[in-house]
Write a protein that binds this DNA or RNA. Sequence first.
RNA 1: GGGGACGUAGUGUAGCGGUUAACAUGCCGGCCUGUCAAGCCGGAGAUCGCGGGUUCGAACCCCGUCGUCCCCGCCA
Length: 586
Amino acid sequence: MHKSIDCGDLRLEHTGQTVTLAGWVHRRRDHGALIFLDLRDRSGIVQVTCDAQNAAAAHEILNAVRNEYVIQVTGLVQPRPAGLANPNLPTGDIEVQATGAAILNEARTTPFYINEDSDVDEALRLKYRYLDLRRPAVQRNIILRHNVVKTIRDYMADQGFMEIETPVLIKTTPEGARDYVVPSRVHPGEFYALPQSPQQLKQLLMVAGYERYFQIARCFRDEDLRADRQPEFTQLDVEMSFIEREDIMGVIEPLYVRLIEQWGSKPILRKPFPVLTYAEAMAKYGSDKPDLRFGMEFVDLSGLLADSGFGVFSAAVAAGGQVKAVVAPGAAGYSRKQLDDLAEVARRGGAKGLVSIAYRDEGPRASAKALTEGEVAAIAAAAHAGAGDLVLIVADASAAVVAKSLSELRLLLGRQLGLIRADAHALCWVVEFPLLEWSADEQRWSAMHHPFTSAMDEDWDLLESDPGRVRAKAYDLVMDGWEVGGGSIRIHRRERQAAMFRALGIGPEEAEEKFGHLLEAFEYGAPPHGGIATGIDRTVAILAGTPSIRDVIAFPKTASATDLMFRSPSSISPAQLRELHLAVTE
RNA sequence: GGGGACGUAGUGUAGCGGUUAACAUGCCGGCCUGUCAAGCCGGAGAUCGCGGGUUCGAACCCCGUCGUCCCCGCCA
């Protein structure tokens, strides 16, 4: 070992000990004959002093070091002189008086600061990711991630789950996201696909009788990126046999409580986590991943305004649609420009317009003149809007448009008005998702979760008569408005699976070709089973308080799915192409 | 595929049609024994992302392009 103790571990109790440290020069304060040096390793920072009179040789060496040099220092741990302790440093009560020093490696001037939390162009950070990862703030995130994953593994094992690895080279799946694909050298013209998740594999492990499986699993989806989406990401993948929905929730909820209480810095607003049905979540928040750190629930005015003289409202209701509102507390003073911006947000959600009523001290002001005084007063009563509040109303024949528009408005106003509690986490379960959703593009029903999801027992009969009304045994875990997990109870009987494929318009031959292995497996005694997968990257990002999962991934990709350090993807040699039986066409 | 923002010394920014492109910090040199964003003195460092156009004159205006970020589509 090049060191006898870690920098960040030194305390008063080590006083009088001679220690050897090794690390990076974090910062240097040169007073000529006296040099102060902050030495940093993974554990933290400690101040080293070196006095030219007492340690001439060491002083000469430390005089030459610069930021980020890798050095070794031997010295005596001493309490700081009275009044000179640094309360900002865990090691601030002591310092190490160097008696010997060695330069283990020099360092070029870094392209950005390692020793301060300044904003740096992200492209530069990614190009020099190994330096970015050296910055204490980034290092904290990576360490947090390790701790979270460690806690997950310990917890899952304690709960009787086995971690089993599944292949990364597997097979393309027809449903779902675009696959990443790997050409086969041995089988010309054939390809593996990287798993979008180990979905079928974990179900097969249930057939195989492992009963409780988990995996910290890498998943791959070739879709466009977002702040919360990377082409490869990590899930806690879980599957259990002989269970119902509540059993999965009963495993995952205590895990998330533990992760937050052990590694987070904020309390959980509500325990146990509220359970909302999909229908409730859409009705109250217009979203299947509602941010419950604030209120602003929607108010349904459809009944109240069905016969309104304002045609937009009555027409929406007559067309089977809705008129709904949110109350922005204290926003009655919003300017024309601010209201225009809100209307633009509503339009992005599909709404044709936005009606606002500002309940000002001098009287309410409605953007729709056709509303009567009585209606304006009734709306205030129904929405519990008082003086100073702004009511925003969206009407549309489509409930989805109303939901999306109002949801965007709710989130924007929640942020603008400071209503979102930044000092706490709010988690909830969303259950009873629709089993199917209509794909306008393909003119067919498609699985909302995936094709192996079971319908709720009482809804199976609707599958042929009214597919859109069938609810699934599916559930999402939502944290602070992020979808952090999702799962379902699976279909484990072949005839149910066949009915599902029929509903999806997948014929017996196609089903056999694409899912034959799974269907056959189900004929050999598949237990009732179900599972969930939660996003490790998202979970850690929320715990770290960062808006992007890139901040909790050691080597993330850019928005265009490139790696700026490796410069990948990259072309391959003609020889490699030939070997893989590939030709590049453009 | 679409929309938006950004791109100026190593880094972070200012400059938005007219002197030698400014400030902070970092870097280099000198001084300095109690600093912890040390201080003081001096110095070097920019083909203003790239290409084209408008203009007497472009970092600045226009077009294109590349890159990064955010959003929509997409993400069972």
